[in-house]
C-alpha cells in the first residue's frame, strides 16, 4: 500500500499589514520550511513499521518552501510535485488543491492561516486536511507542533487509523449575483469599505453583518465577536448571524491578533444548517478575516451555511488512538544467547 500525504505551504501567509496594526506574528519562509520538515519527520516516524509506503505529493510553491524542506530531510522518500500554477496568488493554492484531489491524497497538510485554507477548499472543498497554523487569524488551523501533526497524518496515510477521526467542517457557500461563486470556512462579513485594498478588517464602524460557522470566544478575528455573545463550536449543527450597529450590545472583541475593539451588535441569532441569508451592496465581502470581493450598489450575495466543508483530522485523538494500538511501540529485540566454548 502507498499512502499519499499532500503538502502545501503558503509563502504569503503571515506577512500582511496586520503585522503593523495588530503586531500579529511574523512567519518568514525559513520558519515555514522548518515546520514542513518537522511534519515530514513526524509522518515518516509514524508510518515506519506499518508496512505501508508513503508518498508526499506537494505544491512546489514559487518560494520552494516544501521542495527545500524535502531536500533538507533527504532520506529515501518518494515525493512528487503536483501540476499547479505559479502566479504567486491564491490561484496557486486552488490549482494545487485540485491536483491533490485528482491524486486522491489520503490527507493534506496545509501551512497557513484561515485564508490559505479557504483558498485550498476552493479547489477541493471536502478535502481530508490537517491544517497547521502559520497565518494571522488561525481559527481553522491547529496551533500544533508540526512533528506531532505530521505523525497524525502519517497514521492516516499508512492506514493505521481511519477517517472516523476526521470531522467534516461547516462552511459558507457564497453566491454572488452575476459572478463566480465563493466560499468561507469560518466567517463571511459585509463591510461598508469599498475596496479590497490591504485586505485587513480593522474598522468595526464599517461592519454591517456577518455569518459565522463557528463563534469561538477563545479565538481572534470576527468569530470572537459572536463567540463572546453566544459561542458556537465546530460540532454544533448551526451557525450565528450577526448584524452590527450601535443599538445593541457593545462587545469588546479581539478582531485581530493584539487588537481589541468595541463592536456594536444589534442582532445575534443562530442559523440552522442549509439556511440562507442575503447581503446587498455596495460594500465588500470579507471571508475568513480578509476583504475579498466587492459588491456593486444593489448587487446581491446569498450566503448558505452547510456541513459540506473539509474533513479535519483530530490530532490529539489520533495520537491517543495510536497509543492504544501501539503504533510507536517496537517489539523487544531478542538478545542472542552468549556463546559458550
Amino acid at each position: 500500500m502507498v499512502g499519499k500525504i499532500g503538502l502545501l505551504a503558503n509563502p504569503a501567509s503571515g506577512k500582511d499589514v496586520r503585522r503593523l496594526v495588530a503586531r500579529a506574528s511574523v512567519f518568514d519562509n525559513q520558519e515555514k520550511r522548518a515546520i514542513i520538515r518537522r511534519a515530514i519527520v513526524g509522518a515518516v516516524a509514524s508510518a515506519a513499521g506499518s508496512g505501508s509506503e508513503l508518498e508526499f505529493v506537494y505544491h512546489n510553491d514559487a518560494h520552494g518552501i516544501v521542495q527545500q524542506a524535502l531536500e533538507e530531510f533527504g532520506g529515501d522518500i518518494k515525493a512528487t510535485p503536483v501540476d499547479s500554477t505559479q502566479m504567486s496568488s491564491a490561484l496557486d493554492t486552488i490549482s494545487a488543491a485540485r491536483a491533490m484531489r485528482d491524486q486522491a491524497c489520503d490527507i493534506v497538510i496545509t501551512l497557513g492561516g484561515d485564508g490559505t485554507n479557504r483558498a485550498f477548499c476552493l479547489g477541493w472543498q471536502d478535502a481530508p486536511m490537517l491544517p497547521i497554523s502559520s497565518g494571522t487569524n488561525n481559527v481553522f488551523p491547529n496551533l500544533r507542533e508540526a512533528t506531532i501533526a505530521g505523525a497524525a497524518a502519517g497514521l492516516i496515510a499508512s492506514g493505521q487509523l481511519g477517517s472516523e477521526l476526521m470531522l467534516q467542517q461547516k462552511c459558507i457557500s457564497v453566491h454572488i449575483e452575476d459572478e463566480r461563486e465563493d466560499l468561507a470556512l469560518i466567517d463571511a462579513l459585509l463591510t461598508n469599505e469599498r475596496f479590497v485594498g490591504a485586505r485587513a478588517l480593522l474598522k468595526p464602524d464599517q461592519f454591517r453583518s456577518a455569518l459565522l460557522t463557528r463563534a469561538e470566544p477563545a479565538a481572534v478575528g470576527i468569530t470572537s465577536i459572536g463567540g463572546l455573545l453566544n459561542p458556537v463550536d465546530a460540532r454544533a449543527d448551526h451557525g450565528l448571524w450577526l448584524e452590527f450597529g450601535a443599538a445593541g450590545d457593545i462587545v469588546h472583541a479581539p478582531i485581530a491578533p493584539g487588537y481589541y475593539q468595541d463592536v456594536g451588535v444589534s442582532v445575534c441569532q443562530t442559523l440552522k444548517l442549509e439556511q440562507t441569508v442575503r447581503c446587498v451592496g455596495p460594500g465588500t465581502l470579507a471571508f475568513d478575516g480578509e476583504r475579498e470581493r466587492t459588491l456593486r450598489d444593489g448587487q446581491e450575495a446569498k450566503l448558505t451555511i452547510s456541513r459540506t466543508g473539509p474533513r479535519v483530522l483530530d490530532v490529539t485523538a489520533a495520537l491517543h488512538r495510536a497509543a492504544e494500538i501501539g503504533s510507536f511501540i517496537k517489539p523487544q529485540q531478542t538478545q542472542p544467547a552468549p556463546k559458550t566454548s
Binding site: 500582511d16 499589514v17 503585522r19 503593523l20 496594526v21 503586531r23 479590497v196 485594498g197 490591504a198 485586505r199
Partner: peptide
C-alpha cells in the same frame, strides 16, 4: 516589522503605507 502588499493595487499600498 516587515510587511508585504500588492504593489499593483494603489489602495493596498495606501492603506499599508498609512499605517
Amino acid at each position: 516589522p516587515g510587511v508585504i502588499v500588492d504593489g499593483m493595487d494603489v489602495i493596498a499600498v495606501y492603506e499599508a503605507a498609512g499605517e
